[in-house]
Simulated scan of single mutants.
Amino acid sequence: MKLTTLHYFVAVATEGSFTKASEKLYISQPTLSRRIQELETELGVELFIRHNHGLTLSSAGEQFLTEVSDVLKRVDHLAHLFDPQINSDKTTQILKIGYLQNINMSRMYELFERFKSNHPNVQFLMKQDTPMNLADGLSTDQYDLVFNLSTYFQANQTIEKAVFMKNHLQIAVPFDHVLSHKHELDFADLSQETFILLERQHSLLLSIT
């Protein structure tokens, strides 16, 4: 197992694409794909789940990424062990980030770009997940940061929260419905209601039945 292959694996994992990773690494895509396949054969596991429009890490791949990141950090420490500079650690740091399907992606990436301008050695491993899995994953260190609905975090959890954006839902009700006269509703108002949740590209509509 070569260190270069481990670097290749991290690049593919964080970019989520062989094409983008090969451009970043300045190697051909077939060469990169072959090296990853050789790594998977050597380990005897599938590190990536291939999709039509990209790829994601398998459960084995997520575990391997954690171990590889630690190995590369240790190797970098050895390489700079006798450097005169006190802060010479240039190891790539990986932040595991989970997010909801309907989040404002452009705003999220804009936030990441501003962060990377001050932290060039940080890379992001992105994964779309359900609200419940995001909350659980943050508690079990599966994620370092999540973009989730605040209602999924209990008040007693030791999690630092900040408002990223407010999502205003719309509700369609019949004219004669008891809630029709209200201009704004809380989720508590819907506790006794039966409703249909309609998913749209970037927004949600609640329909009371």
Score class of each variant (00 low, 15 high):
208 I>Y: 01
168 H>S: 09
177 H>F: 05
121 N>V: 04
105 M>G: 01
145 L>R: 00
84 P>K: 13
59 S>L: 12
43 L>H: 06
184 E>M: 13
145 L>Q: 03
42 E>Y: 12
63 Q>H: 10
119 H>I: 10
178 V>Y: 02
189 D>S: 06
142 Q>V: 12
6 L>T: 00
138 L>H: 01
25 L>M: 11
160 E>M: 11
90 K>Y: 01
181 H>M: 06
179 L>T: 06
58 S>P: 01
106 S>M: 09
43 L>I: 06
121 N>D: 14
94 I>V: 14
132 M>N: 10
113 E>D: 13
205 L>G: 04
196 I>G: 00
145 L>E: 04
32 L>Q: 02
95 L>K: 14
158 T>A: 12
97 I>V: 15
190 L>G: 07
154 Q>I: 06
112 F>R: 07
33 S>L: 08
33 S>M: 02
70 D>Q: 13
109 Y>P: 02
124 F>S: 02
120 P>N: 09
63 Q>D: 07
201 Q>A: 15
141 D>W: 02
155 A>E: 08
45 V>Y: 05
75 V>L: 12
15 E>G: 08
122 V>E: 01
199 E>C: 05
32 L>D: 02
103 I>F: 04
161 K>I: 14
16 G>Q: 09
79 A>T: 03
125 L>A: 05
131 P>G: 06
84 P>D: 14
113 E>Q: 12
108 M>S: 08
132 M>L: 15
68 V>Q: 00
177 H>Q: 04
126 M>I: 15
79 A>F: 02
28 S>T: 13
124 F>E: 05
120 P>L: 02
20 K>E: 15
60 A>M: 11
99 Y>E: 07
206 L>S: 06
146 V>W: 06
207 S>H: 06
70 D>N: 12
72 L>V: 07
169 L>W: 14
180 S>P: 08
32 L>G: 01
55 L>Q: 14
192 Q>I: 03
200 R>I: 11
201 Q>W: 03
155 A>G: 00
18 F>I: 08
41 T>N: 13
145 L>W: 01
168 H>R: 15
150 S>L: 08
153 F>P: 03
47 L>F: 01
200 R>L: 15
42 E>F: 10
21 A>Q: 00
136 D>F: 04
44 G>D: 03
87 N>A: 15
120 P>H: 08
111 L>P: 01
191 S>D: 10
138 L>S: 01
75 V>E: 04
34 R>E: 07
111 L>G: 11
78 L>A: 12
205 L>S: 10
29 Q>D: 09
157 Q>D: 11
124 F>N: 04
170 Q>D: 10
207 S>Q: 14
205 L>E: 11
1 M>R: 11
91 T>P: 08
88 S>H: 12
118 N>P: 02
114 R>Q: 15
187 F>S: 05
125 L>V: 08
46 E>D: 10
182 K>V: 05
112 F>P: 00
6 L>A: 04
28 S>M: 03
98 G>S: 11
48 F>G: 07
